[in-house]
Simulated scan of single mutants.
Amino acid sequence: MKIETIAIHAGTKITDTHRPAVQPITLSTTFEHHNDSVIYTRAANPNRLALENVLAKLEHGQEAAAFSSGNAAGMSVFQALPSGSHVIAPDDMYHGLRHLLVDVFKGVLSVDFVDMTHPEQVEKHVKENTKLIWLETPSNPLLKISDIRAICDIAKIKDIPVVCDNTFATPVFQNPLDLGASIVMHSTTKYLGGHSDILGGALVTKHTDELWSRIRLVQTSGGAVPSPFDCYMLTRSIKTFPYRMKGHERNAVEIARFLQNHKNVEKVYYPGLKDHQGHEIAASQMSGYGGMLSFLVKGDAAYADQVIGKLKYYTNATSLGGVESLIERRAAVEGPNTKTPQNLIRLSVGLENLEDLIEDMGQALS
């Protein structure tokens, strides 16, 4: 099956005797013992099994594990590592996961944050106790591009698993498992959910190895799993996901070009632009460039806030991937320890009419 067909059919597992076209929601927390199988909804639920099936197929993986949030998915990987493990992560890692490594797992795990756009920096920081390389490409919020193949080649020699956060690219435009990654991570809150009304996360594995078994143990024993209703809603949203992503990218490309030529914009970060630092690598491992971009205004934080405040069709809000365009001054969200420039604006381009979005952005910048 191609991705559009997978999205529609792989998340449907009909057990109802009336054979409905859409899988119903199974709210029961417990199930009758049958054929030596014991099901309790923290460990398994029909809606979650259907969701995990479609997620695995979208990312060309063997299995998927669904979680109650993207951070819960990432944290399960960290929890599955032996105490004292060393982790290599991007220097511009998503701040929520960075907070977990630096503060929550302080004293349990050690971490080096490196510039992943230079694979030699990854190789330089490998230690005897390195048990994980964490990738995020494109990165948040600078859209930095890491060479997945090159980093996975380094990891393979050292027998180190590579987990790649594929939230920005999505499986429509990038499949890290096909490029050598061990596990793919998603905040399903974002593009997979697509409507800013579902909280969730997921991991998809290439092989069901020892690390995956420990992640499954964390998932079922820890219980940070999505509800049947959230699984149902997410599976429903995934049915339109491939087509939504094409619209997000189409709008993002044109807005990036518009911003690139605007007199009040200093720099645009979008891997689809030929002058983007990682454009060539992105073109070699992505089939499209997604709906996320960032840009620097020619001015300070106050001017950036002024621009955002004048917009009509862009909502000043955190998160991304919804059908509505979302915008924010990222440094204000990340807090006092952020390395993000104060005049950087992050934009999640929605599915509104492109002319409306460009006209609105133009009047705000002017």
Rank of each mutant, 00 (worst) to 15 (best):
Lys298Asn: 14
Ile14Leu: 05
Met116Ile: 15
Ser28Glu: 14
Asp230His: 13
His9Leu: 04
Leu311Val: 10
Ala301Arg: 14
Asn129Glu: 15
Val22Pro: 14
Asn261Ala: 15
Lys274Ala: 14
Asn261Ile: 15
Thr30Lys: 11
Asp165Ile: 08
Cys231Asp: 06
Ser284Asp: 06
Asp197Trp: 09
Ala202Arg: 06
Asn316Ser: 00
Gly309Lys: 11
Ala331Tyr: 15
Ser237Arg: 13
Glu63Ala: 09
Ala301Thr: 12
Val349Asp: 05
Thr205Tyr: 01
Glu254Leu: 14
Lys263Asn: 09
Leu344Tyr: 05
Ser76Lys: 02
Glu63Phe: 07
Thr5Gly: 04
Val22Cys: 14
Asp356Met: 07
Gln277Met: 13
Arg244Lys: 03
Gly288Asn: 13
His60Asp: 03
Leu354Phe: 09
Asp356Gln: 11
Arg257Cys: 12
Pro228Thr: 10
Thr17Glu: 07
Gln121Cys: 14
Ser139Ile: 12
Leu143Arg: 11
Leu109His: 04
Cys152Trp: 08
Trp134Arg: 06
Ala21Thr: 14
Trp212Glu: 01
Ile358His: 14
Gly290Met: 12
Glu324Leu: 12
Arg214Cys: 01
Ala7Arg: 12
Glu266Val: 13
Asp197Glu: 03
Gln285Phe: 02
Val122Asn: 02
Pro336Gly: 03
Ala364Glu: 11
Lys190Asp: 00
Asp112Thr: 12
Met1Tyr: 00
Ala10Ser: 02
Ala80Met: 10
His118Met: 02
Glu136Val: 04
Asp209Lys: 07
Gln277Val: 12
Asn53Met: 02
Ala150Pro: 13
Ala302Ser: 14
His99Arg: 01
Tyr289Glu: 12
Gly322Gln: 06
Asn251Asp: 02
Asn53Gln: 08
Ala364Thr: 08
Phe258Glu: 06
Cys231Trp: 15
Asp36Ala: 12
Gln121Lys: 15
Ile145Trp: 07
Ser348Asn: 10
Val111Leu: 11
Asn261Arg: 15
